[in-house]
């Protein structure tokens, strides 16, 4: 636990240092920009609502990446799984009869979102387990394929007169917004909280969770104690895909109420950052997601002073510094103990 905190602290310090350097390169005073990032976001209830809206999706995509990593698989396919979820969720929501009550419409749309994401994740998992196809590469290919196919479906049947927006979902499927300063934060935050609790319990309190982490730590040892490694990996990829797909509810049911090209793009990579920054612990992932949501809103808030690409660069720096911090801190803590 202490080691994880040290890792995160190291990564954050490196990221702040590199971020400051980049601000200076852009000809600005870092102290001033960091302060404005915080005050401009903190002082506006709209911006804080936006942080929560973004974090809702990042928690789910972050958990998606983290449970796959628990089992030793790198789910880089969140982008495609989320897009499949957005498409399925919006199509089901729009196909329901106009008077469908919320108690029927919302579960159906949610299931469609999670199911579509789980399907893509499952395919990646099956190819990995049965054909030994590297999941990072197939994930990348499937992201492009899913985005391309959903654009084709959009253009062919969904998009309304010249826009890139599909038909609206029925009113019963809409998730109410929380009304924080007119932001898009909505009730789907409950899904995110529920997922954190469920994954937390699953990981530590069930045999499944232990099998999951045993596979990630040492597949050969897991096999030796009778765990079906392949089955665990396929199931975890279905689960990871379903979590990524579930993030679609935030965008479709809670905000746009329709299929839109590009909806949710970028949240997949933020999920990778959240999973690693949260050290694969569900509560850690949730805190990291709030932090990344804040960074992403704060980056927009100072967009008039530094290029908005800065926050994306910081994501890369953050990942790299976590990767460096893990072995450094491990060695440091071993030396202290020895």
């Amino acid at each position: 636990m202490k080691r994880e905190l040290h890792t995160v602290a190291f990564a954050l310090l490196v990221t702040i240092a590199v971020g400051s350097l980049l601000m200076m390169i852009a000809g600005k005073q870092p102290g001033h920009i960091w302060l404005q990032m915080i005050t401009r976001t903190w002082s506006s209830s709209y911006a804080m609502g936006d942080v929560l809206y973004k974090a809702t999706a990042i928690v789910l995509t972050g958990l998606s990446v983290s449970i796959a990593l628990d089992a030793g698989l790198f789910n880089l396919g969140v982008e495609g799984q989320l897009t499949a979820g957005v498409l399925a969720c919006a199509v089901v929501g729009a196909a329901l009869p106009a008077g469908t009550p919320a108690i029927v419409a919302i579960p159906l749309c949610t299931l469609a979102a999670a199911g579509a994401g789980g399907l893509i994740g499952g395919v990646i998992g099956v190819l990995r387990v049965t054909r030994d196809a590297h999941e990072v590469i197939t994930s990348f290919m499937f992201n492009a394929i899913v985005v391309g196919i959903s654009l084709w479906i959009g253009n062919a049947v969904l998009f309304q007169n010249g826009t890139t927006t599909g038909p609206a979902i029925v009113p019963g499927a809409e998730l109410p917004q929380l009304g924080i300063g007119g932001s898009s934060a909505n009730v789907s935050v409950a899904f995110a909280i529920g997922a954190v609790v469920a994954i937390g319990l699953l990981r530590t309190r069930t045999t499944w969770g232990h099998a999951l982490r045993a596979v990630g730590r040492d597949p050969a040892a897991a096999r030796a104690v009778g765990i079906s490694v392949g089955r665990v990996q396929i199931v975890v990829m279905i689960g990871a895909g379903a979590l990524a797909g579930l993030a679609a509810t935030n965008f479709v049911l809670g905000h746009k109420h329709a299929f839109e090209d590009g909806l949710g793009r970028g949240v997949g990579l933020l999920g990778v950052s959240a999973a690693l920054l949260g050290r694969l612990h569900p509560i850690g992932v949730a805190i990291a997601a709030l932090g990344l949501g804040f960074l992403s809103s704060a980056g927009l808030a100072v967009g008039d002073q530094v290029p908005k690409e800065l926050t994306e660069m910081l994501q890369g720096v953050l990942l790299l510094s976590i990767a460096i911090a893990v072995p450094l801190i491990r060695r440091a803590s071993v030396e202290v103990r020895a």
Binding site: P307, E309, L310, Q315, G316, V317, L319, P327
Partner: peptide
């Protein structure tokens, strides 16, 4: 040298390169 996870290093560098080239184009 620093023994960081090779997959994460690769993905991080890709993100960094994609965003960094756009950042420096702006600058």
């Amino acid at each position: 040298w620093l023994e960081a996870d090779q997959v994460i290093v690769g993905i991080a560098l890709n993100i960094l390169a994609l965003a960094g080239t756009r950042f420096f184009m702006q600058v």
